[in-house]
Design a protein around this nucleic acid. Structure first.
Lengths: 152, 152
DNA sequence: GGCTCAGGTCGATCGTGTCCACGGAGAGTG
DNA sequence: CACTCTCCGTGGACACGATCGACCTGAGCC
Protein backbone atom coordinates (compact mmCIF):
# COMPACT_ATOMS: atom_id res chain seq x y z
CA UNK A 1 0.00 0.00 0.00
CA UNK A 2 2.22 2.76 -1.28
CA UNK A 3 1.56 6.12 -2.85
CA UNK A 4 0.66 4.62 -6.20
CA UNK A 5 -1.87 2.22 -4.70
CA UNK A 6 -3.42 5.14 -2.87
CA UNK A 7 -3.63 7.13 -6.08
CA UNK A 8 -5.30 4.22 -7.80
CA UNK A 9 -7.84 3.90 -5.00
CA UNK A 10 -8.53 7.59 -5.14
CA UNK A 11 -8.93 7.62 -8.90
CA UNK A 12 -11.30 4.66 -8.77
CA UNK A 13 -13.31 6.23 -5.97
CA UNK A 14 -13.82 9.20 -8.22
CA UNK A 15 -14.62 7.16 -11.32
CA UNK A 16 -14.84 3.42 -11.15
CA UNK A 17 -15.06 3.04 -14.92
CA UNK A 18 -11.63 4.41 -15.76
CA UNK A 19 -9.76 2.03 -18.04
CA UNK A 20 -6.54 0.43 -16.92
CA UNK A 21 -4.81 2.31 -19.70
CA UNK A 22 -6.09 5.61 -18.37
CA UNK A 23 -5.17 4.73 -14.79
CA UNK A 24 -1.72 3.78 -16.06
CA UNK A 25 -1.28 7.19 -17.65
CA UNK A 26 -2.38 8.97 -14.49
CA UNK A 27 0.00 7.14 -12.18
CA UNK A 28 2.88 6.75 -14.61
CA UNK A 29 3.02 2.98 -14.89
CA UNK A 30 2.23 0.55 -17.66
CA UNK A 31 -1.26 -0.88 -18.04
CA UNK A 32 -0.32 -4.43 -17.00
CA UNK A 33 1.36 -3.12 -13.85
CA UNK A 34 -1.79 -1.20 -12.95
CA UNK A 35 -3.89 -4.21 -13.75
CA UNK A 36 -1.93 -6.30 -11.30
CA UNK A 37 -1.98 -3.67 -8.56
CA UNK A 38 -5.72 -3.16 -8.83
CA UNK A 39 -6.21 -6.91 -8.78
CA UNK A 40 -4.29 -7.09 -5.51
CA UNK A 41 -6.27 -4.23 -4.04
CA UNK A 42 -9.44 -6.12 -4.88
CA UNK A 43 -8.37 -9.50 -3.56
CA UNK A 44 -6.76 -7.89 -0.53
CA UNK A 45 -10.12 -6.40 0.43
CA UNK A 46 -9.15 -2.77 0.00
CA UNK A 47 -11.52 -2.34 -2.92
CA UNK A 48 -14.75 -4.07 -2.02
CA UNK A 49 -16.92 -3.33 -5.04
CA UNK A 50 -17.59 -1.02 -7.91
CA UNK A 51 -21.01 0.55 -7.83
CA UNK A 52 -23.01 2.90 -9.98
CA UNK A 53 -24.42 5.65 -7.82
CA UNK A 54 -28.03 6.22 -8.71
CA UNK A 55 -30.41 9.11 -8.14
CA UNK A 56 -32.80 7.45 -5.66
CA UNK A 57 -35.89 9.37 -6.80
CA UNK A 58 -35.32 8.13 -10.33
CA UNK A 59 -35.75 4.53 -9.25
CA UNK A 60 -38.72 5.07 -6.99
CA UNK A 61 -36.93 5.41 -3.67
CA UNK A 62 -37.74 8.97 -2.77
CA UNK A 63 -38.11 8.58 1.00
CA UNK A 64 -35.01 8.30 3.16
CA UNK A 65 -35.24 7.58 6.88
CA UNK A 66 -32.71 7.15 9.65
CA UNK A 67 -33.88 4.83 12.35
CA UNK A 68 -32.40 4.26 15.79
CA UNK A 69 -33.03 0.89 17.41
CA UNK A 70 -33.14 0.14 21.13
CA UNK A 71 -32.77 -3.51 21.99
CA UNK A 72 -34.50 -5.46 24.71
CA UNK A 73 -32.32 -6.31 27.67
CA UNK A 74 -32.55 -9.99 26.73
CA UNK A 75 -32.11 -9.52 23.00
CA UNK A 76 -29.59 -11.53 21.01
CA UNK A 77 -27.80 -8.92 18.95
CA UNK A 78 -26.78 -11.41 16.27
CA UNK A 79 -30.37 -12.48 15.76
CA UNK A 80 -31.53 -8.89 15.50
CA UNK A 81 -28.80 -8.19 13.00
CA UNK A 82 -29.76 -11.18 10.95
CA UNK A 83 -33.38 -10.05 10.91
CA UNK A 84 -32.31 -6.63 9.68
CA UNK A 85 -30.21 -8.19 6.97
CA UNK A 86 -33.33 -9.77 5.54
CA UNK A 87 -34.98 -6.40 5.07
CA UNK A 88 -33.89 -5.01 1.70
CA UNK A 89 -34.99 -1.46 2.48
CA UNK A 90 -32.21 -1.18 5.06
CA UNK A 91 -29.33 0.14 2.99
CA UNK A 92 -26.90 0.76 5.84
CA UNK A 93 -26.59 -0.65 9.31
CA UNK A 94 -24.26 0.69 12.00
CA UNK A 95 -23.74 -0.85 15.40
CA UNK A 96 -23.58 2.10 17.71
CA UNK A 97 -22.32 3.09 21.12
CA UNK A 98 -25.17 4.42 23.25
CA UNK A 99 -28.72 3.52 24.18
CA UNK A 100 -29.65 2.84 20.59
CA UNK A 101 -27.70 -0.23 19.56
CA UNK A 102 -28.24 0.23 15.85
CA UNK A 103 -28.66 3.07 13.46
CA UNK A 104 -30.23 2.14 10.17
CA UNK A 105 -30.50 4.07 6.96
CA UNK A 106 -33.51 2.93 4.99
CA UNK A 107 -34.97 3.99 1.70
CA UNK A 108 -38.51 3.39 0.55
CA UNK A 109 -40.82 4.77 -2.10
CA UNK A 110 -43.59 6.23 -0.01
CA UNK A 111 -44.46 7.21 3.54
CA UNK A 112 -46.90 4.32 3.62
CA UNK A 113 -44.04 1.93 2.95
CA UNK A 114 -42.02 3.60 5.66
CA UNK A 115 -44.88 3.01 8.08
CA UNK A 116 -44.91 -0.67 7.19
CA UNK A 117 -41.18 -0.85 7.63
CA UNK A 118 -41.34 0.69 11.10
CA UNK A 119 -44.09 -1.70 12.13
CA UNK A 120 -41.98 -4.58 10.91
CA UNK A 121 -38.96 -3.35 12.82
CA UNK A 122 -40.96 -2.95 16.04
CA UNK A 123 -42.25 -6.47 15.68
CA UNK A 124 -38.78 -7.89 15.26
CA UNK A 125 -37.85 -10.03 18.28
CA UNK A 126 -35.25 -8.28 20.39
CA UNK A 127 -36.28 -4.78 19.34
CA UNK A 128 -37.64 -2.74 22.24
CA UNK A 129 -38.26 0.53 20.43
CA UNK A 130 -37.45 2.50 17.33
CA UNK A 131 -36.92 6.18 16.71
CA UNK A 132 -37.31 7.37 13.14
CA UNK A 133 -36.07 10.56 11.59
CA UNK A 134 -37.04 11.47 8.05
CA UNK A 135 -34.54 13.04 5.70
CA UNK A 136 -36.26 15.90 3.93
CA UNK A 137 -33.44 16.06 1.48
CA UNK A 138 -30.07 14.46 0.92
CA UNK A 139 -27.52 17.20 0.45
CA UNK A 140 -24.85 14.72 -0.45
CA UNK A 141 -24.02 11.14 0.31
CA UNK A 142 -20.85 9.06 0.35
CA UNK A 143 -18.70 11.83 -0.91
CA UNK A 144 -15.20 10.38 -1.21
CA UNK A 145 -12.77 12.28 0.93
CA UNK A 146 -9.21 12.90 -0.17
CA UNK A 147 -6.90 10.22 1.17
CA UNK A 148 -3.71 10.74 3.05
CA UNK A 149 -0.68 8.57 3.25
CA UNK A 150 -0.48 6.61 6.51
CA UNK A 151 2.41 8.97 7.38
CA UNK A 152 4.67 6.08 8.23
CA UNK B 1 -37.14 4.31 -18.24
CA UNK B 2 -38.36 0.84 -19.12
CA UNK B 3 -37.54 -2.62 -17.86
CA UNK B 4 -34.28 -2.75 -19.75
CA UNK B 5 -33.06 0.54 -18.34
CA UNK B 6 -33.92 -0.70 -14.89
CA UNK B 7 -31.98 -3.90 -15.47
CA UNK B 8 -29.00 -1.89 -16.62
CA UNK B 9 -29.15 0.29 -13.54
CA UNK B 10 -29.39 -2.73 -11.32
CA UNK B 11 -26.51 -4.50 -13.04
CA UNK B 12 -24.33 -1.42 -12.75
CA UNK B 13 -25.26 -0.94 -9.11
CA UNK B 14 -24.00 -4.43 -8.52
CA UNK B 15 -20.84 -4.04 -10.58
CA UNK B 16 -19.98 -0.73 -12.16
CA UNK B 17 -17.13 -2.19 -14.18
CA UNK B 18 -19.17 -4.52 -16.34
CA UNK B 19 -18.33 -4.03 -20.00
CA UNK B 20 -20.97 -2.84 -22.42
CA UNK B 21 -20.60 -6.15 -24.20
CA UNK B 22 -21.38 -8.02 -21.00
CA UNK B 23 -24.32 -5.75 -20.19
CA UNK B 24 -25.59 -6.31 -23.70
CA UNK B 25 -25.51 -10.07 -23.22
CA UNK B 26 -27.38 -9.80 -19.92
CA UNK B 27 -30.21 -7.67 -21.24
CA UNK B 28 -30.38 -9.15 -24.72
CA UNK B 29 -29.48 -6.10 -26.79
CA UNK B 30 -26.45 -5.22 -28.88
CA UNK B 31 -23.51 -3.42 -27.34
CA UNK B 32 -24.12 -0.10 -29.17
CA UNK B 33 -27.74 -0.08 -28.00
CA UNK B 34 -26.63 -0.57 -24.42
CA UNK B 35 -23.98 2.07 -24.85
CA UNK B 36 -26.58 4.57 -25.93
CA UNK B 37 -29.02 3.68 -23.17
CA UNK B 38 -26.39 3.94 -20.47
CA UNK B 39 -25.27 7.25 -21.92
CA UNK B 40 -28.81 8.56 -21.61
CA UNK B 41 -29.11 7.29 -18.06
CA UNK B 42 -25.93 9.18 -17.22
CA UNK B 43 -26.84 12.43 -18.90
CA UNK B 44 -30.40 12.19 -17.63
CA UNK B 45 -29.08 12.14 -14.08
CA UNK B 46 -30.26 8.65 -13.19
CA UNK B 47 -26.70 7.40 -12.91
CA UNK B 48 -24.72 10.00 -11.04
CA UNK B 49 -21.32 8.40 -10.76
CA UNK B 50 -19.37 5.19 -10.71
CA UNK B 51 -17.43 4.65 -7.53
CA UNK B 52 -15.09 2.07 -6.12
CA UNK B 53 -16.23 1.11 -2.66
CA UNK B 54 -13.26 0.99 -0.35
CA UNK B 55 -12.68 -0.66 3.01
CA UNK B 56 -12.40 2.47 5.18
CA UNK B 57 -9.93 0.98 7.65
CA UNK B 58 -7.58 0.18 4.79
CA UNK B 59 -7.25 3.85 3.90
CA UNK B 60 -6.89 5.14 7.43
CA UNK B 61 -10.51 6.07 8.12
CA UNK B 62 -11.38 3.67 10.87
CA UNK B 63 -13.65 5.91 12.94
CA UNK B 64 -17.22 6.53 11.81
CA UNK B 65 -19.49 8.99 13.59
CA UNK B 66 -23.04 10.14 13.10
CA UNK B 67 -23.61 13.67 14.21
CA UNK B 68 -26.88 15.49 14.73
CA UNK B 69 -26.82 19.26 14.40
CA UNK B 70 -29.17 21.75 16.09
CA UNK B 71 -29.20 25.16 14.50
CA UNK B 72 -29.47 28.53 16.21
CA UNK B 73 -32.83 30.17 15.85
CA UNK B 74 -31.21 32.90 13.73
CA UNK B 75 -29.04 30.59 11.66
CA UNK B 76 -28.92 30.78 7.88
CA UNK B 77 -29.30 27.18 6.81
CA UNK B 78 -27.58 27.75 3.49
CA UNK B 79 -24.52 29.19 5.18
CA UNK B 80 -24.36 26.30 7.60
CA UNK B 81 -24.65 23.88 4.72
CA UNK B 82 -21.89 25.63 2.84
CA UNK B 83 -19.65 25.44 5.90
CA UNK B 84 -20.29 21.72 6.16
CA UNK B 85 -19.50 21.27 2.52
CA UNK B 86 -16.01 22.60 3.15
CA UNK B 87 -15.31 19.88 5.68
CA UNK B 88 -14.03 16.83 3.80
CA UNK B 89 -14.60 14.44 6.69
CA UNK B 90 -18.35 14.83 6.27
CA UNK B 91 -19.18 12.09 3.81
CA UNK B 92 -22.97 12.41 3.94
CA UNK B 93 -25.29 15.23 4.88
CA UNK B 94 -29.04 14.89 5.34
CA UNK B 95 -31.41 17.73 6.04
CA UNK B 96 -33.79 16.33 8.59
CA UNK B 97 -37.23 16.86 10.01
CA UNK B 98 -37.02 17.39 13.76
CA UNK B 99 -35.06 19.39 16.28
CA UNK B 100 -31.78 18.43 14.69
CA UNK B 101 -31.71 20.09 11.28
CA UNK B 102 -28.88 18.00 9.92
CA UNK B 103 -27.57 14.56 10.32
CA UNK B 104 -24.00 14.07 9.22
CA UNK B 105 -22.00 10.95 8.65
CA UNK B 106 -18.33 11.62 9.14
CA UNK B 107 -15.28 9.44 8.92
CA UNK B 108 -11.91 10.16 10.46
CA UNK B 109 -8.81 8.22 11.33
CA UNK B 110 -8.69 8.62 15.08
CA UNK B 111 -10.77 9.70 18.03
CA UNK B 112 -8.51 12.73 18.36
CA UNK B 113 -9.47 13.79 14.87
CA UNK B 114 -13.11 13.25 15.72
CA UNK B 115 -12.69 15.55 18.70
CA UNK B 116 -11.24 18.23 16.46
CA UNK B 117 -14.07 17.78 14.02
CA UNK B 118 -16.70 18.19 16.72
CA UNK B 119 -15.01 21.32 18.01
CA UNK B 120 -14.97 22.71 14.51
CA UNK B 121 -18.64 21.93 14.03
CA UNK B 122 -19.58 23.59 17.32
CA UNK B 123 -17.66 26.68 16.30
CA UNK B 124 -19.44 26.92 12.98
CA UNK B 125 -21.70 29.99 12.90
CA UNK B 126 -25.33 28.96 13.08
CA UNK B 127 -24.66 25.73 14.92
CA UNK B 128 -26.21 25.69 18.38
CA UNK B 129 -25.27 22.20 19.45
CA UNK B 130 -24.09 18.85 18.21
CA UNK B 131 -24.82 15.31 19.31
CA UNK B 132 -22.36 12.66 18.26
CA UNK B 133 -22.83 8.91 18.12
CA UNK B 134 -19.91 6.66 17.36
CA UNK B 135 -20.34 3.63 15.14
CA UNK B 136 -18.54 0.74 16.77
CA UNK B 137 -18.82 -1.20 13.58
CA UNK B 138 -20.39 -0.85 10.19
CA UNK B 139 -22.42 -3.97 9.50
CA UNK B 140 -23.06 -2.89 5.95
CA UNK B 141 -23.37 0.30 4.04
CA UNK B 142 -25.11 1.39 0.84
CA UNK B 143 -26.31 -2.06 0.03
CA UNK B 144 -28.18 -1.73 -3.26
CA UNK B 145 -31.77 -2.83 -2.90
CA UNK B 146 -33.58 -4.66 -5.68
CA UNK B 147 -35.48 -2.25 -7.86
CA UNK B 148 -39.11 -2.47 -8.82
CA UNK B 149 -40.83 -1.19 -11.87
CA UNK B 150 -42.76 2.04 -11.23
CA UNK B 151 -45.89 -0.12 -11.59
CA UNK B 152 -47.38 2.31 -14.06
C1' DG C 1 29.77 -12.37 -6.86
C1' DG C 2 25.70 -14.92 -8.03
C1' DC C 3 20.65 -16.56 -6.65
C1' DT C 4 16.17 -15.47 -6.05
C1' DC C 5 12.20 -12.90 -5.99
C1' DA C 6 9.08 -8.99 -6.52
C1' DG C 7 7.51 -6.03 -9.54
C1' DG C 8 8.21 -3.69 -13.56
C1' DT C 9 8.29 -3.10 -19.19
C1' DC C 10 7.38 -4.60 -23.92
C1' DG C 11 5.01 -6.90 -27.63
C1' DA C 12 1.33 -9.67 -29.38
C1' DT C 13 -3.29 -11.21 -29.50
C1' DC C 14 -7.93 -10.90 -28.88
C1' DG C 15 -12.00 -8.76 -27.11
C1' DT C 16 -14.36 -4.34 -26.52
C1' DG C 17 -15.79 0.54 -27.28
C1' DT C 18 -17.61 3.36 -30.39
C1' DC C 19 -18.78 5.42 -34.90
C1' DC C 20 -21.62 4.91 -38.89
C1' DA C 21 -24.98 3.57 -42.32
C1' DC C 22 -28.90 1.03 -42.64
C1' DG C 23 -33.59 -1.16 -41.43
C1' DG C 24 -38.06 -2.19 -39.13
C1' DA C 25 -42.12 -0.99 -35.96
C1' DG C 26 -45.46 2.29 -34.57
C1' DA C 27 -47.88 6.96 -34.56
C1' DG C 28 -49.81 10.52 -37.04
C1' DT C 29 -51.91 12.18 -41.39
C1' DG C 30 -54.04 12.74 -46.15
C1' DC D 1 -54.77 2.10 -46.63
C1' DA D 2 -50.36 4.00 -47.92
C1' DC D 3 -46.94 7.35 -46.88
C1' DT D 4 -43.71 9.40 -44.00
C1' DC D 5 -41.30 10.62 -39.83
C1' DT D 6 -39.16 9.24 -35.86
C1' DC D 7 -37.23 6.24 -32.63
C1' DC D 8 -34.63 2.64 -31.59
C1' DG D 9 -32.48 -0.97 -32.75
C1' DT D 10 -28.71 -3.97 -35.65
C1' DG D 11 -24.35 -5.15 -38.02
C1' DG D 12 -19.88 -3.96 -39.78
C1' DA D 13 -15.47 -1.60 -39.26
C1' DC D 14 -11.70 -0.02 -36.95
C1' DA D 15 -8.99 1.83 -33.23
C1' DC D 16 -8.14 1.13 -28.54
C1' DG D 17 -7.85 -1.45 -24.30
C1' DA D 18 -7.31 -5.83 -21.59
C1' DT D 19 -4.46 -9.32 -20.68
C1' DC D 20 -0.96 -12.98 -21.36
C1' DG D 21 3.83 -14.44 -21.69
C1' DA D 22 8.67 -13.44 -22.10
C1' DC D 23 12.10 -10.75 -20.54
C1' DC D 24 14.56 -7.06 -17.52
C1' DT D 25 16.18 -4.83 -13.29
C1' DG D 26 17.27 -3.81 -8.50
C1' DA D 27 17.19 -5.35 -3.54
C1' DG D 28 18.15 -8.65 -0.19
C1' DC D 29 20.73 -12.64 1.08
C1' DC D 30 24.05 -16.56 1.06
Amino acid sequence: MDTIDLSLVELLRGNARLSYAELARQVGLSAPAVHERVGKLESGGVIRAYRAEVEPEAVGLGVTALIGIVENSDADTDDVLEAFRQIPEIESCYFMAGVESFLLKARVGTIAELEQLIVRLNRTPGVASTRTGIALSTKWENRPQPLELPTA
